[in-house]
């Protein structure tokens, strides 16, 4: 088999190659893409480089074993869940030594990791969006407005609002997630009222 296929660039393609050939080479290519990110996640929770390196290696082993057992569809989302659960378990083991930082970001919803089916976007109007932005809390509204509408960078937003990097990132992410929820609710209401009008 020609292993050095440069054109293979999606995770799904690599997974399909692995499942069809059971050749671990493809898992290697796939996992190496995420080493830096996994290291970052482990560093966030474990706070120590050596512990984080060990954790990434353990997660890699877990992933390799699990991939033989289950057919994974969304690799990146699954990898994130496996990595975070592993780190949280490690933190729990060392409870007392380390303080686990629980943030709103720990709650990962399906919509965060799976962004298929954006059909609802077709019905979104400018009015709905503006109304929804106004429903966000002040910090989220400010950060969403500066980042998405005024095209400011995180650094600029930090300077303008006095928030730190993590706060800016969290406000933008949560703001975006809430905005989506508000807009989807409005689209549903709109399509329901349209149906009712047609029935009448």
């Amino acid at each position: 088999m020609a292993k050095k296929k440069e054109h293979i660039n999606t995770d799904e393609e690599l997974l399909a190659l692995f499942y069809s050939s059971e050749d671990t080479y493809w898992i290697g290519v796939l996992l190496q893409r995420y080493t830096l990110l996994l290291l970052g996640v482990c560093l966030k929770y474990l706070k120590d480089m050596e512990d984080a390196k060990d954790a990434v290696q353990q997660i890699d082993i877990k992933i390799i074993t699990e991939l033989y057992k289950h057919k994974v569809q969304n690799f990146k989302a699954w990898l994130f869940i496996v990595a975070r659960n592993y780190c949280l378990m490690e933190c729990r083991k060392n409870r007392g030594k380390r303080k686990i930082e629980i943030t709103e970001n720990l709650i990962v919803t399906e919509s965060d990791v799976d962004d298929k089916g954006e059909q609802w976007l077709m019905d979104v109007t400018q009015e709905m969006l503006e109304e929804s932005i106004m429903e966000l809390n002040e910090a989220q509204r400010k950060c969403v407005d500066l980042f998405y509408l005024q095209q400011k960078s995180y650094k600029d937003i930090m300077a303008l609002t006095g928030f730190d990097f993590k706060e800016v990132k969290t406000h933008i992410q949560n703001g975006k997630r809430n905005l989506k929820t508000f807009v989807i609710q409005k689209v549903k209401q709109y399509s329901n009222s349209k149906k009712n009008n047609l029935n009448a």
Partner: peptide, 12 residues
């Protein structure tokens, strides 16, 4: 979400 958590660790 993966990158978002990773960046916090990498920045340390």
């Amino acid at each position: 979400p993966l990158a978002s958590e990773a960046i916090e660790g990498l920045m340390q």
